[in-house]
Design a protein around this nucleic acid. Structure first.
Lengths: 345, 345
DNA sequence: CTGAAAGCGCTTACAG
DNA sequence: CTGAAAGCGCTTACAG
């Protein structure tokens, strides 16, 4: 019963045709006419034997493994990595591709290490995705250029590899606009002084939106953690802010503490907004934190989709590579925002 | 220059030997004597051509893909999944295996879905790992039994598949022992009423250790989130607890709030301990939360190691399957524990 | 509309 | 100590 699984010749002999014909029918080879009757016989033979083509054998022959490699930079370092992987995996399954994963160490160096890439190439993956969340630009090793590739979270220094990034600036702008629509005027920003794309993008989004609306900006810097958010928020409250927009959710944790210390109830007396939608923070705070969700799932899916296009040769490669694709961050409204209490400012 | 990569025959002709010999040398085939001189020639030819054996071709021939599949149940649902993947991936790389990942949906049903397993089998993976964090027991689909398999986070209902689990009970016990060693007597447990292995194991660890030490247990139930921890801790404080051990870190967030509300400073007037070491909670709280780290990385690595053993046929399969392997949870001591203030109790 | 034959790049009895 | 030959399970020109 659990004999060895059926091969293409088993199907062929059961259907009374040649393996060639079985291959044509099952793969729906274009420009190949097979009579409907024959095709039906082949299909039922395949079904009866529960024939599963050996993907390894096919790969050897077609020089395509139907496998894509995802190289994550220090997967464990970011709590969001899971959603990138999930997006990539689901899109891969949708396209009948298998997703292989290798983790590489987090590195200061903006150059991608060639070893993990080589491990994928040895596997003859059809393409590779490199996912990072820390760099502006990376420089790809030579061996990565031998195959279709796509970047998540960084752009290619040489401008040859398509990349996808979250639209941090628009995300921050949407927060400020929402706060203004609710009636806030004195909107403080608890910024991070780290020099990474996220800090710059969010700060720009905040500042330009404030300026565009004729509002003065109110920025205090702190470390991008609860302690930094606490200190920055204290100063922001003392400067008369009715709403505090935090660089990230971790800072928002500290903002809540600062509000409690200054006896400001949230959201009635102080509105707070975070960024990242980093589980379990927003739902662990009381009231639940209004924040911004990063398009991690979407970036993962985009990467596989784009890679598949490159592999199939629809490569507007150069077009895409010159302008990184930017995916929207979406506002996740929960309970930490209300109109300002006193009409300050 | 970027001509097609060297094949085994290129190496063979450069070294002046047959492909057979190249294969023997490079794979160090046992029971095969090749003169050192010839072997050296082969190795330098391979190095010179930067020969990388085609793993697909080898797999077709040897009927082994050197690929293992990791099936994660709703990878995105758990913030810990990343470390399981990391452990599995690193152990796989160490063994020259490739890790493929497929996510399956979270299901109430304790039966593993056969489809994702089939997707792996079509790929001819050498073995599959099924990782879940929610079930007691799972029932494996028939197609999983055709290949070496290993479970993370659940045991096999039929007792045929080796499994690995965190030692929740011992982890909880170690917390209680530590608290007792610090001088606490009235140690409260903020428990969860959810019926999953983790809730049961931690409660048992708490209760038996208290009982073994002749201490009465002090348990309050709540939802396993910040709000639940808040309510339970309030009751625990009112019952005179000098230390509160929370079922998980999310409850500990609420415990901190409860302590603030009752004007108990942490850790001087109230010690708090969590469980899970769920980033970014412990370091986002002030003072930083002492908690328990789950062996996620280790379970991932164990799974690949065990699977590799099964694949190579060192299968004490049945022995292992009957008794799930249990890996220790380790105490992560930070700043939320101190000796009790007043010698209560 | 269908099939015989070659070949993808390896490994492995087997023979010498 | 070394090599010729077969074959893993497919796909794909090519021929008819």
């Amino acid at each position: 019963m659990t004999a060895k699984p059926a091969g293409i010749r088993d199907v062929a002999s059961l259907a009374g045709v040649s393996p060639t014909t079985v291959s044509h029918v099952l793969n729906e080879t274009p420009h190949t006419r097979v009579s409907e009757e024959t095709a039906d016989r082949v299909r039922s033979a395949a079904a009866e034997l529960d024939y599963r083509p050996n993907r390894l054998a096919r790969g050897l022959r077609t020089q395509a493994s139907d496998m894509v490699g995802l190289l994550t930079e220090e997967i464990a370092a970011t709590p969001h990595a899971g959603r990138i992987i999930l997006g990539a995996q689901q899109e891969a399954t949708r396209r009948n591709l298998t997703l292989a994963i290798i983790n590489s160490e987090l590195r200061e160096d903006p150059a991608i290490s060639p070893e993990p890439v080589q491990a994928f190439l040895d596997r003859h993956v059809d393409g590779v995705i490199y996912a990072t969340v820390y760099h502006d630009e990376i420089v790809a090793p030579a061996n990565l250029r031998t195959r279709p590739a796509v970047l998540i979270g960084a752009r290619d220094a040489d401008g040859n590899i398509p990349a996808v990034l979250p639209d941090e600036t628009a995300g921050a702008a949407s927060v400020v606009k929402m706060l203004i629509a609710r009636g806030h005027r004195r909107i403080g920003f608890a910024a991070s002084a780290e020099d990474v794309p996220a800090t710059r993008g969010r700060l720009i989004g905040y500042e330009t939106t404030m300026a565009d609306t004729g509002l003065g900006s109110l920025t205090e810097y702190g470390d991008p953690d609860a302690r930094g958010g606490y200190a920055a928020t204290l100063r922001l409250i003392d400067s008369g802010a009715t709403a505090v927009f935090c660089y990230n959710d971790r800072m928002a944790i500290g903002a809540y503490r600062a509000a409690a210390e200054r006896s400001r109830s949230i959201p009635e007396q102080l509105s707070i907004v975070g960024f990242d939608d980093q589980a379990p923070i927003p739902d662990s705070l009381y009231p639940a934190l209004t924040t911004v969700t990063l398009p991690h799932y979407e970036m993962g899916a985009w990467a596989v989709e784009t890679l598949a296009g490159l592999i199939d040769g629809h490569g507007e490669h150069s077009l895409m590579a010159s302008h990184p694709t930017v995916l929207p961050c979406t506002l996740a409204e929960r309970d930490s925002v209300a109109p300002p209490h006193a009409s300050a400012g």
